[in-house]
Simulated assay, not measured.
Amino acid sequence: MFAAFPTAILLSFSSAHAETSLQVYGPGGPTPAMKACAAAYEKSNSVKVQITAGPLEKWQAQSETADLFYSGSENMMDSFAEKISSLDTTSIQTHYLRPSAILVRPKNPLKIRGIKDLVDKKMKVIVVNGAGQVGMWEDIVGGLKSAEALNKFRSNIVFAAKNTGEAEKRWKEDPSIDAWLVFNIWGTRNPESAQIIPTEKNLTIYRSMGTALAKNTKQKEAAIQFVDFIKSKECRKLF
């Protein structure tokens, strides 16, 4: 007959071997790279990283359970800080910059080479005027230093989305749309329907991808270690 282990010992043994699970929340844009980074991290650590992504309103009610947040721009992070009381503003860090790009239909039927073509040619264009791209199209086209260019570009806009997910849905549903001004990652996400055309170097806008810890996380050390991994060479390749 075997002696029974005391309950306290069993609980201690179980806790020591329990898998840590980090809850991470953020927008859709950086999510493919974040998920790839999380998967790579899980392979070499006894930590499960659960990424919940989408517009803030999709996950704000759950944000009290977060250990870590990530954003798609400095403006977006500031907005999160205003609306999420558990976000620790002292821990905000920027890790990567995301360049603007033009998505066109496969094989580029209109031979679009850059922003100047989106101004000079008559076409249907999508922009995002919210989330991490507040004011982005104006910043980009404004680089031409021409009020006429801004007017021409605006006349080509057929849809100004509130967020990139909304723009992606429209892009997929309406093949008559010729171009989508967004970040390059969205072309990587949609290779079957989009080809990436870089914006001109002097007109390219960069927006940040950063993280912030949750004030009430009970796994601060694990969250910090994951942030360090996000900054590593392995994740840099993924981003």
Results as ranks from 00 to 15, higher is better:
residue 3 A to I: 12
residue 4 A to P: 01
residue 7 T to E: 15
residue 7 T to D: 14
residue 11 L to T: 07
residue 15 S to C: 10
residue 18 A to V: 04
residue 18 A to S: 15
residue 22 L to A: 08
residue 26 G to P: 06
residue 31 T to W: 06
residue 32 P to G: 09
residue 32 P to K: 04
residue 36 A to S: 11
residue 39 A to D: 14
residue 39 A to W: 00
residue 43 K to H: 03
residue 44 S to V: 12
residue 47 V to Y: 02
residue 50 Q to H: 10
residue 50 Q to F: 00
residue 51 I to C: 04
residue 55 P to Q: 05
residue 58 K to R: 15
residue 59 W to F: 14
residue 63 S to V: 06
residue 67 D to C: 06
residue 69 F to L: 02
residue 70 Y to T: 04
residue 71 S to Q: 01
residue 72 G to R: 02
residue 77 M to P: 00
residue 78 D to V: 00
residue 79 S to W: 05
residue 81 A to P: 01
residue 86 S to H: 05
residue 86 S to P: 01
residue 89 T to V: 15
residue 90 T to A: 15
residue 91 S to I: 02
residue 99 P to G: 02
residue 99 P to H: 04
residue 100 S to W: 05
residue 100 S to R: 03
residue 101 A to C: 03
residue 104 V to D: 08
residue 110 L to Y: 09
residue 113 R to C: 03
residue 113 R to G: 13
residue 114 G to A: 06
residue 115 I to Y: 03
residue 115 I to M: 15
residue 119 V to S: 10
residue 122 K to Q: 13
residue 122 K to M: 03
residue 124 K to D: 14
residue 128 V to Q: 00
residue 129 N to W: 02
residue 129 N to E: 14
residue 130 G to N: 05
residue 131 A to K: 00
residue 134 V to K: 12
residue 135 G to Y: 04
residue 138 E to V: 06
residue 140 I to C: 05
residue 145 K to L: 08
residue 146 S to Q: 10
residue 146 S to W: 09
residue 150 L to T: 04
residue 153 F to Q: 03
residue 156 N to C: 10
residue 157 I to F: 07
residue 157 I to H: 10
residue 159 F to R: 09
residue 160 A to R: 09
residue 160 A to Q: 14
residue 162 K to N: 12
residue 162 K to R: 11
residue 163 N to Q: 03
residue 164 T to S: 14
residue 165 G to V: 05
residue 166 E to A: 14
residue 166 E to T: 08
residue 167 A to P: 03
residue 167 A to V: 02
residue 171 W to H: 06
residue 171 W to R: 03
residue 172 K to A: 13
residue 179 A to H: 10
residue 179 A to E: 06
residue 181 L to M: 12
residue 186 W to C: 00
residue 187 G to H: 10
residue 190 N to A: 04
residue 194 A to I: 10
residue 197 I to R: 09
residue 199 T to V: 15
residue 200 E to D: 12
residue 203 L to W: 09
residue 204 T to F: 03
residue 211 T to E: 01
residue 213 L to R: 01
residue 213 L to T: 07
residue 215 K to Y: 04
residue 218 K to L: 12
residue 219 Q to Y: 00
residue 221 E to Y: 02
residue 221 E to A: 15
residue 228 D to S: 12
residue 231 K to Y: 01
residue 231 K to W: 04
residue 233 K to Q: 12
residue 235 C to E: 09
